[in-house]
Each structure stands twice: as C-alpha cells, then as structure tokens.
Amino acid sequence: MEATEAVSAMKIDEKSPLTVVNSVKTDPAAAASAGSQAQRGTTADASKDTVELSSDVQRYAKAAEALPKVPEIRTERVAELKAAIKAGEYNVKARDVAEKMLMAMKKGIVV
C-alpha cells in the first residue's frame, strides 16, 4: 500500500442475539433477504466493498418470525399441574430439583 493512499477504518460492534432478533422483528423477510444478498456479494464491480453476514442473521429472522406463533403460557400443561397439585399427586424428586439447579448454575443462570 502506498503512503499516499487513504486508509479507512471500520468499527464492528458485536451485538447480542437478542438485539439482532429485536431489530428484525418488524420485518424478518427483509432481514433474511438482506443477509442472503450480502452473502452473495457483488460481482459487478470488484472495487466496491462487500459485507458478508453470518447465517445467524437468517436463523434469528426465522426465530423472530416463529416467536409470535408460540404461546407464552402452555395452558394445557398448567391445568394438568394444577389438577395434580390439588389431588396431592404432584411429587418432585429432590434429586431432579438439585440437578436442574446445578445445570442452571453452570449456564450462569441465577436461581
């Protein structure tokens, strides 16, 4: 590179998956198409800058599209558990609780 050429710098911020999902929630189809276009790059002019996005963007867009379709509360399961508790048939093994707590702690989830 010659000393007379200008060098431009670009800062790339890492975003959390949740941030990406929230940003494509309004238009997941546009985000997916933008991701696939960026992956293909441009062949018309080799002097232009290109951006390649990971396949994560497409997966996040699909997840954001599917998320509203998933019920927030599984009412059938809640009804089953309430009935079992009311009948005195709901029993939890202490070992199962301990294992779940340890797994949550390993993942960094505060219990």
Rank of each mutant, 00 (worst) to 15 (best):
M1N: 06
M1V: 12
M1L: 10
E2H: 08
T4Y: 08
V7G: 04
V7A: 09
S8L: 12
A9L: 02
M10F: 03
K11G: 10
K11N: 14
K11C: 12
D13R: 04
D13C: 00
D13F: 01
D13I: 00
K15H: 08
K15Q: 11
P17W: 00
P17S: 03
P17C: 01
T19A: 11
V20P: 02
V21M: 10
V21T: 06
N22T: 09
V24A: 10
V24D: 11
V24Q: 09
K25L: 09
D27P: 05
D27A: 08
D27K: 06
D27M: 05
P28A: 02
A30F: 07
A32V: 07
A32F: 07
S33A: 13
S36Q: 12
S36W: 03
Q37P: 05
A38P: 06
Q39P: 09
Q39H: 09
G41R: 00
G41M: 00
A44P: 02
A44C: 03
D45F: 05
S47P: 05
S47R: 13
S47H: 10
K48M: 14
D49A: 09
D49K: 08
D49R: 06
D49G: 12
D49F: 04
V51G: 07
L53T: 09
L53D: 02
S54Y: 04
S54F: 06
S54H: 08
S55Y: 03
S55P: 07
V57R: 06
V57Q: 06
Q58P: 03
Q58I: 14
R59N: 04
A64E: 06
E65N: 05
A66V: 07
P68R: 02
K69G: 02
K69D: 02
V70K: 15
V70C: 11
E72M: 12
I73K: 15
I73S: 13
R74I: 02
T75Y: 11
E76Q: 14
R77A: 04
R77S: 03
V78K: 15
V78R: 15
V78D: 14
L81A: 07
A83F: 04
A84C: 00
A84D: 01
A84K: 03
I85D: 03
K86H: 00
A87S: 01
A87I: 02
G88S: 01
G88C: 02
G88T: 00
G88I: 01
E89T: 03
Y90A: 01
Y90H: 00
V92C: 09
V92K: 13
K93D: 13
A94C: 05
R95T: 15
R95N: 14
D96F: 08
V97R: 10
E99G: 09
K100I: 10
L102M: 09
M103D: 14
M103T: 11
A104R: 15
A104N: 15
M105P: 05
K107E: 14
G108I: 14
G108N: 13
I109K: 15
I109N: 13
I109Y: 10
I109T: 15
I109E: 13
I109L: 13
V110D: 15
V110K: 14
V111L: 02
